[in-house]
Design a protein around this nucleic acid. Structure first.
Lengths: 340, 340
DNA sequence: AACCATGATGTAAACCTTTACATCGGCGAG
DNA sequence: CTCGCCGATGTAAAGGTTTACATCATGGTT
């Protein structure tokens, strides 16, 4: 039964007493083979436990049914649920998913690019906001690619994510409606498109309320906990404090929260803090964090659907899909303290 | 330069004015080819931008240089750093890493098994404490495999992880030295070997201190936040409280902490809580969590080294590698309250 | 001077598929 | 009865490698 070598199509053919061509057809174009033969073949497959050799198959075909998902950091709390969406959609269409982990190392990114020479993958999903290889000349020879979660910096790449501008807008609007007038934006960035969009939403919200945009209250950050803590320290050094901290993501908000608590302040009594993304830990923070929910599995699903559309080279119906962000109100926002 | 089709070995041969055999040798057995030819070949490779077709290669060779890493949940906070260790070691030996995500679905596990028929992967790292496919007959035809982080339930599979017994022992010893006598163990499990081992350490510690093992204080759990919260409620319903909660992992400890805080208790003034694993969030919890550090990248490194040893079918030097667990003392442990 | 070992290179088979093309038999129409 | 067509199946090539074996030239030994 289970010999040392995996069964090949030839083993099946021998047992079914047909040619290998017929076996192949019985598998891939069943309607082209007589019912009785089909039966024999299926029995033979069951007997041998044959599964087609994927490498030989895609060598012959010149294409594979694998999609490469490239992420700089597998540990990103947003990644896992997006992956689930990607995988489910992929498998529903007969595709599989490989995960590539670049650790922000262009060298590694390049290695994954080789996958496409060998047809080891047919397309690529980019979880990084940037092309994962240094600025090679090869922009031309890029495989079909879709960005998720964060628009791809180098431009021109279809993208699926949440509507960052509107999400940020919802946050500022909430803060303003609570009575805040001095709202800091923590985590501005020139390189991360998503953060830039969130900042636009922030500014739009202020403008709509007739509030000035105070450049002193906009601090840079890279979305890490540490960056939040750091920005907070800078603000305290300047002694020109806001009443609310609108953070570019939940990690940053955690940093701000920790810093504030370390200084002995209470949230939301003394200051309000908001995040963005609603990572799994957001509900467990103390206080639990008011933030924007990312529809993560939906993002994954749409992104994969878009990529498969690209692969079937029907012209893709759209090139940027923006999903609706939902505000999640928890306990980190309150009215500003009476005076300061 | 960059035509539409990727360059093949034949293109290189033509340009270098040698046969394809020589090109292949120049790449894989450079000492077998004259220095002058080697030079020509290398130039031709540079000109064409040739990279070998990995599929054709492993089709011919009957083996690949990819290692499949199977995890039920990519989002597990322990996974990412272990992966880094695995990857670094793999690439140092010319191997690459593929990540398989099973979502605890045996069907998916089986699909990954097909990788080995096609030689898409040469070996497998199991991050799940269990064989990721239902109980197939195929235990015999298992590819070279190493478990990480959690011993593999179905037995006989080499394993690299932390010494759970000793780690747990360090935790109880700490609690006992603080003066605790009634210590609950949250997260016992029949199916998760690591948890069983941690419980052994717990019992050993109690025994060494001459304390009784109270079965009422040992609660089941599956390592989720929710399981921690649940176990806590059970204890409160029984009205027979411990002074310290030793949790099987950090997530469980988070659940216990949240439950305790919801009931208005202070940690560590009213109760002490400990975790295990030192996940990245442990330091950010409030209070910050006293726990056991997993040497995650080291685990990955050793596991991959062991697997590569297995692959080279030198008999592996050892079949279980246990790394030293370190106690990380933070702020969730204190002496028990004066009376109760 | 004849021979052989040695080193460098080329030829062709094999790995496992898929599929264009050929073959074959049967059946309906003329 | 013959022809042509159609459906079912088989034959063989192709896809890009690696490598056993063959070939060839060179230089040293006898």
């Amino acid at each position: 039964m289970s010999n040392s070598q995996p069964a090949t199509i030839e083993d099946v053919a021998r047992i079914a007493e047909v040619s290998i061509a017929t076996v192949s057809r019985a598998i891939h174009m069943p309607e082209k083979v007589a019912k009785s033969t089909r039966l024999k073949v299926n029995q033979a497959i069951a007997i041998t436990g044959y599964t087609p050799n994927a490498m030989a198959r895609s060598l012959r075909l010149g294409r594979s049914n694998m999609i490469l998902v490239v992420a700089p950091d597998i540990g990103d709390p947003n990644f896992s649920s997006i992956l689930v969406g990607l995988e489910n959609e992929a498998r529903a269409h007969g595709y599989g998913v490989l995960i590539g982990h670049t650790q922000n190392d262009a060298q590694r990114g390049l290695e994954y690019l080789k996958f496409f020479n060998s047809n080891q993958a047919a397309g690529m999903i980019l979880f990084t906001g940037i092309l994962p290889f240094g600025h090679q000349t090869l922009t031309a020879r890029l495989p079909p690619t879709v960005g998720v979660f964060e628009p791809v910096f180098n431009g021109g790449i279809p993208y699926v994510g949440v509507d960052d501008v509107e999400g940020a807008r919802k946050v500022v609007d909430l803060l303003i409606s609570e009575g805040h007038r001095r709202i800091a934006f923590i985590g501005d960035s020139h390189t991360r498109l998503a953060y830039g969009r969130r900042r636009s939403g922030y500014e739009a919200g202020l403008a709509a309320a007739g509030l000035p945009v105070n450049r002193q209250l906009i601090l840079e950050g890279d979305g890490t906990v540490e960056s939040g803590r750091l920005a907070l320290e800078q603000l305290f050094m300047r002694d020109d404090l806001p009443t609310a901290f609108m953070c570019v993501n939940d990690q940053t908000a955690l940093g701000v929260t920790l810093g504030l608590k370390a200084r002995g302040y209470d949230i939301p009594q003394d200051f309000s803090v908001t995040g963005f993304d609603d990572v799994p830990q957001a509900g467990f923070m103390s206080p639990s964090l008011t933030t924007i929910r990312q529809p993560r599995t939906a993002i994954g699903k749409h992104a994969m659907a878009l990529l498969l559309e690209l692969l079937s080279d029907r012209a893709p119906s759209e090139t940027e899909i923006l999903l609706r962000p939902d505000l999640v109100i928890r306990n980190s926002v309150g009215p500003p303290p009476p005076r300061r």
